[in-house]
Amino acid sequence: MSEWKDICKLTDLAANTGVCALHNGEQVAIFLDGKEQKVHAISNFDPIGKANVLSRGIIGDIKGRLVVASPLYKQHFCLETGECLEEPENSVKAYQVRVEGDVVQLQA
């Protein structure tokens, strides 16, 4: 079975915002959806703006899909799949993430 790695406390995440974690040498953006109290994780790298910024975008939903809007040029990335809604060829990696107790974990 896969292993999980502790990242941070759930309280480190303010509702409806994101943080960036360093995970196996990769930058991962982790978001807390306030409505369902669920965490989501995708790559922190915005392939369009070419900068590590996605964790700093505003999250919300577009036609029912949970997304983050890049703070650079506002393209939407699906928090569940990493798909870029406007330019699917620029989609990013999604990560397995969970909350155990009060600890946020990423799949190793």
């Binding site: 990242i7 941070c8 480190d12 943080v19 960036c20 974690a21 360093l22 995970h23 930058q27 982790i30 790298f45 900068a51 590590n52």
Partner: peptide
């Protein structure tokens, strides 16, 4: 606390 690149590391953005 929010003013750090990583929540779990003191490293900075390598980009």
């Amino acid at each position: 606390k929010r003013f750090a690149h990583f929540i779990n590391s003191d490293l900075t953005d390598d980009n």
